[in-house]
C-alpha cells in the first residue's frame, strides 16, 4: 500500500516533468501558480503521509509544535511566489528542476509532517495569515500597471490576480462557516479516514 502510493507520487512527479505537460502548465501564469505549484506541494504531502512512520525520532522531537516545519512551508511558498523565481523557472530548466525538487521536498513534506503537530490555534493562525496574504498578492497583480514576469502577458497577470483572489474568498468563506456556523470542512475533522479528500484529510487531520 505504502510502496504503491510512493510509486504513484513519483510517477505523478515524472508526468508533471514531461516536457509537453511541463511547458503547457508553465505557458500560462494561472496554470503555473494555481495548478502546477500546488500539485507539486501535494505530492510532497503525499510522500510525508506515506513515510510518516519512518520519520526519524530526532526530527519529530526537533520539530516542536510543527514550528520549524511550517516556517519552511511559509518561506518556501514565498520564494516561489516571486515573479523573478517564476521567470527563472520558465526560462531555465535547471531552475525549474530546483522548483520541482524544492516544492515537494522542502514545502510539501514539512507541511505533511508538521501540520498534525501544530495546535489548533496554530493552524488557525496560519490560515488567518495565508488567506489575506493570498488576496493581497492577487490585488498586487491586478493593480500592477506593468508586467511583473517577463514571460507572461499583462492579461495573464490580471487573470492570475483574480484567481488568487477567488481562492482567497473561497477559503475565507469556508473558514467563516467553520468558525461561526459550526459546519466543519472535511480537512478539519478529527478522523481523516472517514472524510472524502484523502490528501486534504492527511494535511488537516490528526
Amino acid at each position: 500500500m505504502n510502496a504503491r502510493l510512493l510509486a504513484a507520487a513519483t510517477g505523478s512527479w515524472l508526468v508533471l516533468w514531461l516536457p509537453p505537460i511541463r511547458h503547457t502548465l508553465e505557458s500560462d501564469m494561472v496554470l503555473h501558480m494555481a495548478v502546477q505549484v500546488p500539485l507539486l506541494i501535494m505530492l510532497g504531502v503525499l510522500v510525508a503521509v506515506v513515510a510518516r512512520d519512518r520519520e526519524p525520532r530526532w526530527l519529530a522531537d526537533a520539530d516542536w509544535l510543527g514550528i520549524p516545519g511550517i516556517v519552511a512551508v511559509v518561506l518556501g511558498t514565498s520564494f516561489w511566489m516571486l515573479p523573478r523565481a517564476l521567470d527563472q523557472a520558465v526560462s531555465d530548466p535547471w531552475a525549474d528542476l530546483i522548483k520541482f525538487l524544492s516544492l515537494p521536498l522542502l514545502v510539501g513534506v514539512p507541511l505533511g509532517l508538521s501540520w498534525r503537530r501544530m495546535p489548533p490555534l496554530g493552524r488557525a493562525f496560519i490560515w488567518a495569515n495565508f488567506i489575506p496574504k493570498l488576496g493581497a498578492i492577487g490585488g498586487l497583480y491586478l493593480g500592477a500597471p506593468t508586467r511583473l514576469c517577463a514571460y507572461y502577458r499583462l492579461d495573464q497577470q490580471e487573470l492570475a490576480g483574480w484567481t488568487l483572489i477567488a481562492i482567497a474568498v473561497a477559503l475565507g468563506m469556508t473558514w467563516f462557516f467553520a468558525a461561526f456556523v459550526g459546519w466543519t470542512p472535511s480537512c478539519a475533522k478529527q478522523s481523516p479516514r472517514r472524510s472524502g479528500g484523502f490528501l486534504i484529510a492527511a494535511v488537516g487531520g490528526n
Binding site: 530526532w58 526530527l59 522531537d61 526537533a62 520539530d63 516542536w64 514550528i67 520549524p68 516545519g69 516556517v71 519552511a72 518561506l75 518556501g76 514565498s78 520564494f79 516571486l82 523573478r84 523565481a85
Partner: peptide
C-alpha cells in the same frame, strides 16, 4: 528538545538567506 532551536535556526537562516539572494 534541544534540537528545536537548532532546526528552527537552520530553517530560518537557509530560508531567509535564499529569499535575500533571490531579491
Amino acid at each position: 528538545t534541544r534540537g528545536f532551536p537548532v532546526l528552527l535556526a537552520f530553517v530560518l537562516s537557509i530560508g531567509i538567506g535564499t529569499l535575500a539572494f533571490e531579491t
